[in-house]
């Protein structure tokens, strides 16, 4: 027989429990606090000159100083990122579905995809500028292209991973062609492609800034280039942090969407 526990729960246990319960969260912040503390300390003691590392306050002041222009820069970049990401991802999924589903189409188009896949999108920037000019369209096409590659590969893989059991079950219940597509294929690949969608979104920010370096009148990349040109390291960092913050924001939104669409997915840790 197991003896009943008789020790009382005192304040010590409560505090201990509180710390254990939240230690994960506290640790999550620890690394960030250290990095920011280090930055704050190095820049404010003057050990590192502001040219190389302006202080956090200086970066903030710079942002406030140019705050009137910020909506324009944010809107310009975010427009390219969102539109390019949406078009590229949608095309990737739409093309990945038939290539993954049909054996014949798979045979024909998979080598093409495998050939395009290793091409670094950034290496194609000069070509896209040559073909589509220096304006918005070549940047949009670059971002779309990068997202397309990620999603087409991801979708082909996800379609092939569908358990034939579900297709057979649907068929034996009378589902045909498009019904199977809509009720089995699409829901079954969602968990698989959500990862690809988030990778594509994150990559879009990088491709956008690289495209902006080739010439733009506004955007995150413009702030960075101007910061370098006028040796305003604080402005340069404003550009970098804007990208970071918006990338985190987009990733967070996508995660929310993902958890909504994958409520049904069995988790291993449950």
């Amino acid at each position: 027989m197991i003896p009943a526990r008789t020790d009382k729960i005192g304040w010590f246990h409560i505090v201990k429990g509180w710390i254990i319960e939240r230690s994960g969260r506290l640790l999550n912040f620890l690394g960030l606090v250290i990095i920011f503390g280090l930055w704050f300390w190095l820049s404010n003691t003057g050990w590192v000159p502001p040219l190389y590392l302006p202080s956090p306050q200086a970066v903030y002041r710079c942002f406030i100083q140019y705050s009137a222009d910020m909506p324009m820069h944010i809107a310009d970049s975010m427009y390219r990122i969102i539109v390019g990401f949406a078009i590229g991802s949608a095309l990737g999924i739409l093309m990945g579905l038939p290539i993954g589903w049909s054996k014949v189409l798979g045979r024909i188009f998979e080598p093409v995809v495998e050939f395009i896949r290793p091409m670094p999108p950034l290496a194609l920037i000069p070509l896209f500028i040559l073909w589509f000019g220096i304006g918005n369209s070549s940047k949009l096409i670059l971002i779309s292209f990068g997202c397309w590659v990620i999603l087409v590969v991801n979708t082909i893989e996800s379609v092939r991973n569908i358990d034939p059991l579900y297709i057979n079950a649907a068929r034996s219940l009378g589902a045909k062609g498009f019904q199977i597509f809509r009720t089995v294929l699409i829901p079954a690949i969602i968990p698989g492609i959500m990862g690809g969608i988030r990778v594509a979104a994150a990559t879009s920010f990088g491709m956008n800034v690289a495209a902006e370096f080739m010439g733009t009148r506004a955007g995150f990349g413009y702030l960075i280039i101007e910061g370098r040109r006028f040796v305003m390291t604080d402005l340069l960092l404003v550009g970098v942090f804007l990208i970071t913050i918006f990338s985190i924001l987009v990733n967070w939104l996508l995660k929310l969407t993902e958890s909504h669409f994958t409520r049904w997915v069995p988790r291993k840790d449950l």
Binding site: L165, G174, W264
Partner: peptide, 27 residues
Amino acid sequence: PSPDIGIVFQKYAAFPWMTVEQNVEYG
């Protein structure tokens, strides 16, 4: 395959993305 022939498979074959109700009303 035909809806005239129903199958109960060896493996669990309920569509995991549908609720119990949605699975049952699928056919």
